[in-house]
């Protein structure tokens, strides 16, 4: 197990104290993470509390990174998979869907966005409850961040393009005169 090594994670590590994310000690924390991991691998887009879901994001990244590097014939990775994934049909999904999908991607394999806070709905009004969306990259669902816009037809951009063209033509003409 100690021989397993990957690159450093490319996600932000949360500042919250890990033992205080859930009550009930280490076992309860592990069970919570396993439940969210299974949900993430199955549905590919979930919502939830920022502390628990940002914590499980690191585990998902690490498992896919190991699966990419060592494959399904390795003993240590399969032990880790067996421990962290409760539903065993999802282990097949990791090796058959996620690994070929992310062969060429370097960076993080998940996205997380902060949802707007709904004031007045949570239990303690002085502690705002922040929820996030977690998703695997390149999923079939519609994108959360809207498509990049085409700003080339806005008036200022048109004028700037014309000015740039004029400047280049003048500079070229000047250079040609100097060469003669």
């Amino acid at each position: 197990m100690s021989n397993l090594s990957t690159r450093t994670l490319r996600v932000t590590v949360p500042h919250a104290i890990r033992s205080k994310i859930t009550g009930g000690g280490q076992n309860a924390r592990h069970e919570k993470i396993k439940a969210i991991l299974g949900e993430l691998f199955r549905h590919e887009r979930i919502e939830g509390y920022i502390r628990t879901h940002d914590e499980t994001r690191q585990y998902a990244e690490r498992l896919i990174e190991l699966a990419k590097k060592y494959g399904d014939q390795h003993v240590g990775t399969m032990q880790l998979m067996d421990y962290w994934v409760n539903d065993k049909d999802l282990i097949h999904k990791v090796f058959k869907v996620y690994v070929p999908r992310y062969t060429n991607t370097i960076g993080p394999y998940t996205n997380s966005y902060r949802l707007p806070i709904k004031y007045g709905e949570f239990k303690f009004p002085h502690i705002p409850r922040q929820n996030i969306v977690l998703e695997m990259k390149d999923n079939p669902y519609p994108r959360i961040i809207p498509d990049p816009r085409n700003y080339s037809n806005i008036l200022t951009n048109v004028l700037l393009n014309e000015a740039r063209k004029e400047y280049r033509t003048e500079r070229n003409n000047r250079n040609e005169k100097k060469d003669k």
Binding site: R45, Y113, I117, V133, Y141, P142, I144
Partner: peptide, 14 residues
């Protein structure tokens, strides 16, 4: 945060 009004549409579609 992301826009809640735009995300409502995406959540219903998913």
């Amino acid at each position: 945060t992301i826009c809640g009004n735009c995300y409502d549409r995406i959540r219903k579609e998913t």
